[in-house]
Design a protein around this nucleic acid. Structure first.
Lengths: 250, 250
DNA sequence: CGGACCATTGATAATTGTCAAAATTCGTGG
DNA sequence: CCACGAATTTTGACAATTATCAATGGTCCG
C-alpha cells in the first residue's frame, strides 16, 4: 500500500515540513542537486514536495506510464530495470538515498522508459515536472548541478557498458563487487563487509548472465579465499587486491 | 594534421562567421541545444566558438586528457570508446552531426573518460567550458535543452545496456542494424540501404563480441534473405519485418 | 516447526571465442 | 583504368565457456 503525504501549504504553517517524515535535514539537504541553495530557497522548494512510501517489492514506476514528476530517493533503495527481447530482466541502476530519477524528457512529457521497484522499504520525495522546470528557470545553478549529476550517471552507465563488453564473466562479477564495496560496504577487521542490495538472481540480471553462473563464480571466489559468503545478502571481501586483479582494475 | 580556425573577434567584423567553414546555417543552427535562441543570441554565441578539423583515424580526445571544452560535431562521425579490462575496445557512442560531447564534469574540470576517434574526416565546433557555463546562466533554456538532450542520450545508453544483456547475439546484431537504419539508412526500391559507420571489427567492439562472429551472423542473415551485403560498408535490408522479429522489437 | 523461497551443485547441450588459412575488398600509384 | 599490395573479411575446425535442466540443500519468516 502506498501512502501519500502532501505538504498542506498555507494556514499557519511555517516553512518547516510538518509531515513527520521530513525534518529539515531530510530530503532537500541530502540531495546534491539542491546543495547550492540557501536555506530560504530550500524552504521555498520544500513546500512543493510531497512524499510517498513503498514497501519492499512494490513498483514505484512502470515502463510506459506517464511520467509527470521527478522522484528523489530519500530512504531505502530501488532497482531500475527493463525487460530484454528474450524476456529477461535487465537491471540498469540501483538507486539509493539522494539519487533521483524521472528527469528524462523534462521537456516532452513522455512516458517512463523503465520499471523501478523497491528493494527494501522506500521513502521518496516527489516534485512535479512542471514545477521543477520553473525551478530550473529560477535557479540556473540547479540546472548546472543536474547536468553535472547526469554527467556522472552517464559515466556510471558508460562504465557498466564497458564492463558488459568484457567477455570474461569473472571480471564482470569482480567489478560489481568492487562497485558494491564503495556503496554498500563497511570496513571491519577481517576485510570489507558488503550488504548486498540484490539477490543472486538480481546480480545475474545486472550482469546479464544466468543466476547459476553467479552462484558458481561466487563459490569459486570463496574457494580461492577471496571472499566469504556469510549469508545470502552478506559477503565479506577478505582479499581485496586479488579481487581487483580479477576485475582487471589492477 | 589538425587545423584550427579561431574566430577573430573585433575589428570591423560583423557577427557573421568569416572563417569560411561556417556560414550562418552551419554549426549553431544544426545543433538542437541552441534551437530556442533567436538570431541575435545565436550570433553572440557564434563568436565564442572556434573550429577544428580532423582526418579519418585521428583522435579528437584521449581518455585521461584534461577536458576544458564542449565539442559539437559539425561534419562527419566519430566513435567514443574505452578499453575493457581485457584489452578490447568497447565502443560507447557514435557521434554524428549535431551531437556534442565533453559536457561531463561541467563543474569539476575533470579529465575525459573515453577516447573519441574520427571515423571519417570530421569538423567540429568547440566552446570553452567556462564560457559555456556562463551561457547556461544567461540562457536557462539552453540548460533545460541540454538536460533533455542528456536524458535522451541516457535512454540510448540504457537501451544499449539492455541489448548487451540479451544473451542471444543474433538479437543484438539485429537491434544494431535497426538502430543504424534510422541513423544511416535511406529508402530505395529494394529495401533500406545502410551506409555502415563501422567496420566489422567496429561492430564487434560495439556489441562486445568477436569480429568473426559478426561475419558469421551477417552471412547467416544474408543466406536467410534478410539482408544483402553490397560491400564492406554497405548493407541492404531486404526483409525488415524478419529483422525486427529477430531483434525482438516485434 | 514447517513451508516457501532462494541458492548451490551436477550433467549436458549450445553458443561463441580463438587460431589459422583463404578469399575478398580497398586504396594507391602507375 | 588497371594492377598490385595491404588491409579487411570470411570460413573452417576446435576448445572453452556458459546456459539450461533438474535435483538437492539452505535460509528466512511466520
Amino acid at each position: 500500500m502506498i501512502k501519500e503525504h502532501f505538504q498542506e501549504g498555507g494556514v499557519a504553517m511555517t516553512n518547516m515540513c510538518q509531515c513527520g517524515h521530513c525534518t529539515h535535514d531530510l530530503c532537500m539537504h541530502r540531495v546534491p542537486i539542491f546543495s547550492t541553495l540557501n536555506q530560504e530557497e530550500i524552504e521555498k522548494i520544500a513546500n512543493l514536495i510531497h512524499h510517498r512510501e513503498y514497501k519492499k517489492g512494490e513498483i514505484l514506476v512502470s515502463e510506459g506510464e506517464k511520467s509527470e514528476s521527478i522522484v528523489i530517493m530519500h530512504e531505502g533503495s530501488a532497482k531500475a530495470y527493463k525487460y530484454t527481447a528474450d524476456g529477461r530482466e535487465q537491471i540498469l541502476y540501483i538507486f539509493s538515498e539522494g539519487d533521483f530519477f524521472g528527469e528524462q524528457n523534462l521537456l516532452s512529457d513522455n512516458t517512463a522508459t523503465y520499471f523501478v521497484e523497491a528493494l527494501q522499504d522506500v521513502k521518496t520525495c516527489v516534485l512535479l515536472k512542471s514545477q521543477f522546470q520553473q525551478l530550473l528557470h529560477q535557479y540556473p545553478e540547479i540546472a548546472i548541478k543536474i547536468i553535472d549529476e547526469l554527467g556522472q550517471r552517464m559515466m556510471r552507465l558508460e562504465n557498466a557498458l564497458q564492463s558488459m563488453g568484457v567477455r570474461n564473466v569473472d571480471a564482470r562479477l569482480g567489478s560489481l563487487l568492487i562497485e558494491f564495496e564503495s556503496k554498500y560496504g563497511s570496513t571491519v577487521p577481517e576485510g570489507i563487509l558488503i550488504q548486498l542490495p540484490l539477490s543472486r538472481e538480481g546480480i545475474a540480471n545486472y550482469l546479464g548472465i544466468a543466476r547459476e553462473t553467479v552462484s558458481r563464480k561466487l563459490s569459486q571466489l570463496e574457494q580461492e579465499g577471496i571472499i566469504r559468503s556469510l549469508n545470502n545478502k552478506t559477503i565479506l571481501i577478505t582479499d581485496q587486491s586479488s579481487l581487483k586483479e580479477i576485475a582487471g582494475t589492477v
